[in-house]
């Protein structure tokens, strides 16, 4: 106690935050065969089937081979899925096993709990993104149009979906509840978010409808960062992603502060 009393609040909070992140990263690294490796295998299959077998029949898109065109979308798809899955499974698992109480009884402000879990999700999302990028490089050449935009989109998207996963986990009461959103909302939105096609190819009605899909903005912003082509204005894309991040962050913080799903 005396050692803790001698430390400043900032020092203590830095250690607390670091410990949550460490615990989160250790968790998914401990089970890397379930968390890091599968996206690489899945994406390799996508590249073989869509890139090598079907791609040549489709031809070029926006001046790039089909394989090069879908690569940013596939990388982004992995980032989204893994950032979401990390936080939703980790937090719900902690609730289920009740070891979330280790954090709740400790003197940690809710905002640090939120940032700790989200950072864990972002780290996994980015790590999987790197693994999938390495996989993509085995099949095609990749160029980076703007490192700044590419990295910013990856981090913001991973943050957004980590926040979404956290909200899902807070509301979830049983394991079914953490698979409903990924299965029925996240996967359809991702597949319809321009990963495999340009919305220019769609009829006008579907083009307009697609604009309501937030994942379209992320995939296109990332594609712009890598290839320099996008169906959406990069400014609009960043505004949409940023707004979603802010809204979900404030909502998550409010849920944590009011104890939804954690305190009775």
């Amino acid at each position: 106690m005396s050692e803790l009393a001698a430390m400043s609040l900032t020092q203590r909070y830095t250690v607390s935050f670091g410990t949550i992140v460490y615990k989160e990263v250790s968790r998914f690294m401990r089970i890397w065969l379930q968390t890091i490796l599968p996206p690489a295998i899945t994406m390799a299959l996508y590249f073989v089937i869509f890139g090598h077998l079907i791609g040549p029949r489709i031809g070029q898109m926006h001046g790039f081979s089909y394989m090069q065109y879908i690569a940013p979308g596939l990388i982004m798809m992995s980032v989204i899925t893994n950032a979401y899955a990390n936080v939703v499974s980790s937090l719900f698992g902690a609730k289920f096993q009740r070891h979330i109480e280790e954090i709740l009884v400790a003197p940690i402000p809710e905002i640090l709990i939120l940032l700790g879990f989200v950072t864990g999700g972002v780290v996994r999302g980015v790590l999987v993104g790197l693994v999938v990028t390495a996989t993509a490089l085995c099949f095609t050449e990749l160029h980076v149009n703007s490192w700044g935009i590419t990295l910013a989109v990856v981090v913001l998207t991973a943050t957004l979906f980590s926040l979404a996963g956290l909200i899902n986990a807070l509301y979830a009461k049983k394991f079914d509840d953490i698979s409903i959103v990924p299965t029925f909302i996240l996967t359809p939105l991702t597949y319809l978010g321009g990963v495999f096609y340009s919305i220019d190819m769609l009829p006008a009605f579907w083009q307009k409808l697609s604009l309501g899909n937030p994942i379209l903005y992320m995939v296109n912003a990332f594609r712009y960062g890598m290839l320099g082509v996008s169906d959406i204005s990069i400014g609009v894309a960043f505004t949409v992603i940023g707004l979603f991040c802010v809204v979900l962050f404030l909502f998550s913080l409010q849920l944590l502060r009011s104890g939804v799903g954690l305190r009775t």
Partner: peptide, 29 residues
Amino acid sequence: GVVPQEFNFSMFESVLEIVLNQAGFYGLP
């Protein structure tokens, strides 16, 4: 310091990790 009625630690962590993490949550380097 709290010792709850039911076991509430991660079943996948080692004994030392559990204790070290708890110290970390309280801000102890």
